[in-house]
Design a protein around this nucleic acid. Sequence first.
RNA 1: GCGAAUGUGGCGGAAUUGGUAGACGCGCCAGGCUUAGGACCUGGUGGGGCAACCCGUGCGAGUUCGAGUCUCGCCGUUCGCACCA
Length: 863
Amino acid sequence: MQERYEPAAIEAEAQRYWDEHRSFEVTEDPSREKYYCLSMFPYPSGRLHMGHVRNYTIGDVVARFMRMQGRNVLQPMGWDSFGLPAENAAMANGVPPAKWTLDNIATMKSQLKALGFAIDWSRELATCRPEYYRWNQWLFLRMLEKGIAYQKTGIVNWDPVDKTVLANEQVIDGRGWRTGALVERREIPMYYLKITDFAEDLLEALAHLPGWPERVRAMQANWIGKSEGVRIGFPYEIDGVRGVLHAFTTRADTVMGVTFCAVAAEHPLATHAAAGNAELAAFIEECKRGPTIEAEIATQEKKGMATGLSVRHPLTGEDVPLWVGNYVLMSYGEGAVMGVPAHDERDFEFAKKYGLAVKPVIDVDGRPYSTEAWQSWYGEHGRCVNSGKYDGLDFQAAVDAVSADLERLKLGEKRITWRLRDWGISRQRYWGCPIPIIHCEACGAVPVPDDQLPVVLPENLVPDGSGNPLLKDAAFLACTCPRCGRAARRETDTMDTFVDSSWYFLRYACSDNQRSAVDERVRYWLPVDQYIGGIEHAILHLLYSRFWTRVMGELGLIVGFKEPFTHLFTQGMVLNEAFFRKTETGRIEYFNPADVDVSVRDGRRVAVLRKDGGVVESAGVITMSKSKNNGVDPQVLVDELGADTARLFTMFAAPPEQTLEWSDEGVQGAFRFIKRLWKAVYEHVSAGAAAPLDKARLSEAQRSIRRQAHHTLGKVTDDIGRRRTFNTAIAAVMELLNALSKFPQQTPLDRGVMQEALEIAVISLSPIVPHVTHALWRGLGHSTALIDEPWPSVDAAALEQSSVQMVVQVNGKLRSHITVSAGADEEVVRKAALADAHVQKFIAGGTVRKLIVVPGKLVNVVV
RNA sequence: GCGAAUGUGGCGGAAUUGGUAGACGCGCCAGGCUUAGGACCUGGUGGGGCAACCCGUGCGAGUUCGAGUCUCGCCGUUCGCACCA
């Protein structure tokens, strides 16, 4: 074993060993228990970023740990390689998205390999390859047959200058990002998937996912948004036409407090009213130019306009004025709300602004209601007042009575409404999976027959920002109708990239199968035992994957499971300080932290750009991103200090589900620790082979070290295996190493204890820093490869202690410590505590009223 | 706006089931060593106080023998909001 720790050589050697022995290629083996450990596949954006390093290191630690626990571990990797950034890069560089994407994959794959992840590369897939996306198309056609996929119109952001559909992120302050033109809402035909048919099951099953974080389950439940309420009909007669305006409410008990109704700008009644009302038509146009993003709709100023029409209250028969409101969503409920200003904060605000009546009809514990200003309790449940026959009823009784009356009048009924909407998958983009449809003038939209799949996306086009380039590709467009054989036009919309990522985890089980989407190997590997990815995917990707898995079950393609991911781990974001300067034009320019020196002058932190010596301002510690130029290139770190240091720091600096702050000093600390471990092993083995450990002859000091070593092993096993708190596992090994550095090496028995303790330290850290531990294991005299070693078990005998220290409190405050024998009964502990001189001092002058003993831990004397 | 998290020394964080607040690391201070290294080693380091002790986990209340942990109210930060992935 050499004296110096040289990460480059050590890591190359370990990786060569794993490659030569194909250590991580796995096959189905029914005699062994499988473990499918999956990290969310990356979008090939160019180079790896720290978020990837963190994500894949977490997965790798779990995979290696489970492998040492004896499981048949599958850890695959692939590329989520369709999407908008490739089109943007194509426009910027004049390179086709395909070339840009494949180049990025090559770069990032070599970076992943340099980090030493235990990946089975033989199963690699990329969603932009026809071998993958042909099965998207095939599955889409099956859903079309089943009625799960269907066509209807949907609203998109339309840039009138570029004549193109924009993604939400391409709309900045209501304008197109390239043209600056005011974006319009436009309704176009699209394909949807009926995820709402699965809403009940998707919601109910959340209760049976104990391996998922509570917060993700809560977010999904709220997203699905089941509300039980009443659909209320407000009859009207407008221009001689009779009809009923339906509004959904969860507060039917407040129906007697209705003072207006409001509909969305797209509602048919709004359109009708606008026909003879130019001012209203202009307002509706304004609403339609407004934001499409729910967060912006909810935060914008609430605006409305009276239609001049009114509807009739179903129970009182009174006229209720009808308004158009910019806060009413067409996509939720009926696109209309009944306005009860007295008991709904948004309605209150709206009524105050437009001088509508506020009519309190709920009494909450007799508290006085004032229409002056909104109080948070106005929205609480209570008893009906000022409500005629419903007076005195509580919430549930009132809802029951109102809905029964409405039902009798055929003007309403109890109803369940979901917030979840069907999933629109059509995208007017080039770089995605073509939707396999052919448009025939005679036959309409005709599915592409299975034997014509895949519909291959041409890979040589370069988008220019104005519309989908497929629309100009004659070779792609031209086709014949499968039904009538006449010339027809190919669909140019592609699929949402969330389709690609909704089932890739199934495909890893059989990515080499060119004849079917999935096969029997899925039964062995699925469901995924541990899924790891960013918290930002908590809702959409994870919900779509749960939906897709159910659909594939209904199609009879997979059996035995409905939930794709048994355990879910959501890792936090990686943050770093960002530095900027305002240019003379007021533009903000960001500088990479690697080019900035921070020092302390006169007690104040000063950041200076190295290039020009000028001061830059700090924007604080924020998420690493391209736009803030505060990313750290993992490759630089790997080249300078090695993959193990990169892995150790990202696992040590924060608990994995929380945000991680980058720190160059912290990285040095991680590197220093690996060097200390190396040195400890080097010094130990330099003195020759250690004698076998004779456990019967250990001194108290030796027993104590051995106890700590086994205690550490137990803690690491629990921290990695159950708690997934890798930071505390590492801290425990650091403590062990600190103790070992103070442990004298005088007798052969000392060296035996040391050998065992160092082996525990090396094995414990091996899932986290696999390269250096691979070398150290050899250094400690083993001819085996550490990756093939079983995870050791704790020697219970080593943990035994003859006496324990207990804390003594007086009135809850720490006053003293006592040492008692390990199994001492309560009476002995009481006496020892009361006899303690320090305790005596604090109980003098009072009487002991109570004495609480927590065995093995603490005594509290209450005076 | 709605939903979900989160808040502890100079900094990242620990305290797993209501039981010693600050493990471990960074930084800083003091000393040592020197083959001057990306050094390394030893000791110290929440605040106040000479001390005995006192104070201390975003703010304000509460439950309890005992609260960083539980309950209620407020404030700040972060993530998501359906076409970024």
